[in-house]
C-alpha cells in the first residue's frame, strides 16, 4: 500500500446496544453489534464490507455516520475525530459524509418532488445559499445520474426501483461529500438494473473522486466495486485485504467458507464447497475467544480461550485467526 494519508480512519469503533431483560434488572446485557472495528480508507478508493445478516455491517455504517451514537472508538475524517463533535459542529461537518440506503422506496419522502428531495440537503446546509444555484445544481446532478431533467417535478412513486436508486444517489452527491456510505445499494434491484447502478457508481467515483464504504452481503458485487474488502463476523473484522488477495488467497476459515458458498453462474467452474454447519450465533451471547469457533471445522482449545489478534499475512492483508 502506498504511504498516503487515509481519508477515513476508523479506530476500535464500538457500538453496544444495551438490553435489559427486566425493568428492574441490575445486570446489563449488551448486543455487541460492532465490537472493536478498525480500518483505513484512502481517498478515491472503495472499501467493501461483507458479512451475513447480524454481522454488524449496517450498524458499522450508521455508527460512522453517527446516525446511531457509537459507544466507543474514533472515526478520523482527514485527521479530525468525527465522534468528538458536538451537535452544532456535527451538523456543520455532516456535508462531508453522506449515505445511500438499500430501499429507495423507504428513504425517499413520498410527499416531496424529486427536485425538492435532491435539494433538501443543500437547503439545510445552505450550500449553495441561493435557490437559483441550488436549482442549477439539481439539474446538474440529474444529468450525472442519467435521469431526465424534467423528472424534478415528479414524485418518487412514479419511478421504478432502479430510477429511485438513481434519485437516492443524486441526493447523496448533492453536497459533494468526501465519503459516501452505501448500505446495500443494489440488493433490492433486479440484475439488469443492478449493473446499471453499479456502473453509475463507478463512473461517479472516477469523475468526482468520492470515497465509498460499500456494505453488502453479495460478495460478487463487493468484488466488482471495491479496492479493499473487510469481512465481518459478529461485529468484528475477521479479515481485511486488497480484493485480489482476499479472493485468491483467503486466510480466515470464515472467508474461505463464505467464498466457496457463493453460487457461481457458470457450470464449468467446479469447486469444492465448504458448507458451514449451523447459524450465526446470537449477538447477545457471543462465543468466548474466537467468535467463529462454533462453526469452524478446525477449532482447537485455544480458539475458545483467547481472542485472536489481527495478524499481517502480507502487506495490507490482515486476518484474525489462531490457526493459520
Amino acid at each position: 500500500m502506498t504511504e498516503q494519508k487515509p481519508l477515513v480512519e476508523v479506530r476500535n469503533l464500538q457500538k453496544w446496544f444495551s438490553v435489559s431483560n427486566h425493568f428492574f434488572s441490575i445486570k446489563q446485557n449488551y448486543v455487541k453489534a460492532v465490537n472493536g472495528v478498525s480500518f483505513k480508507v484512502n481517498k478515491g478508493e472503495t472499501l467493501g464490507v461483507v458479512g451475513e445478516s447480524g454481522s454488524g455491517k449496517t450498524t458499522l455504517g450508521r455508527a460512522i455516520l453517527r446516525l446511531t451514537e457509537p459507544t466507543g472508538g474514533e472515526v478520523l475524517l482527514e485527521g479530525q475525530d468525527f465522534l468528538k463533535f458536538n451537535k452544532r459542529e456535527l451538523r456543520k461537518n455532516r456535508d462531508s459524509l453522506s449515505c445511500i440506503f438499500q430501499d429507495p422506496q423507504a428513504s425517499l419522502n413520498p410527499r416531496l418532488t424529486v427536485g425538492d428531495l435532491i435539494a433538501d440537503p443543500m437547503r439545510i446546509q445552505k450550500k449553495p445559499s441561493t435557490k437559483r444555484e441550488r436549482y442549477e445544481k439539481v439539474l446538474e446532478l440529474l444529468d450525472v445520474v442519467g435521469l431526465n431533467r424534467d423528472v424534478m417535478w415528479r414524485y418518487p412513486h412514479e419511478f421504478s426501483g432502479g430510477q429511485r436508486q438513481r434519485i437516492g444517489i443524486a441526493r447523496a452527491l448533492a453536497l459533494s461529500p468526501k465519503l459516501v456510505i452505501c448500505d446495500e445499494p443494489v440488493s433490492a434491484l433486479d440484475v439488469s438494473l443492478q449493473s446499471q447502478v453499479l456502473n453509475l457508481m463507478d463512473d461517479i467515483q472516477k469523475s468526482m473522486g468520492v470515497t465509498y464504504i460499500f456494505i453488502s452481503h453479495d460478495l460478487s458485487v463487493v468484488k466488482y466495486v471495491s479496492d479493499n474488502i473487510a469481512v465481518m463476523y459478529l461485529g468484528k473484522i475477521v479479515e481485511i485485504a486488497p480484493k485480489e488477495k482476499l479472493y485468491d488467497n483467503p486466510i480466515h476459515p470464515y472467508t474461505e467458507a463464505l467464498l466457496s458458498a457463493i453460487p457461481i453462474p457458470d457450470t464449468k467452474v467446479k469447486r469444492t464447497k465448504i458448507i458451514l454447519q449451523g447459524d450465526i450465533p446470537n449477538p447477545m451471547n457471543i462465543p468466548s475467544g474466537c467468535c467463529f469457533r462454533t462453526r469452524c471445522q478446525e477449532a482447537q482449545y485455544i480458539c475458545a480461550d483467547t481472542v485472536p489478534e489481527m495478524k499481517e499475512y502480507s502487506p495490507g492483508h490482515f486476518y484474525a485467526c489462531h490457526l493459520r
Partner: peptide
Amino acid sequence: IPKLHRTHERLKS
C-alpha cells in the same frame, strides 16, 4: 452480473 471468478471488467448492462 459481476463474476466472482473473473477479473474486474466493466459490466455490460
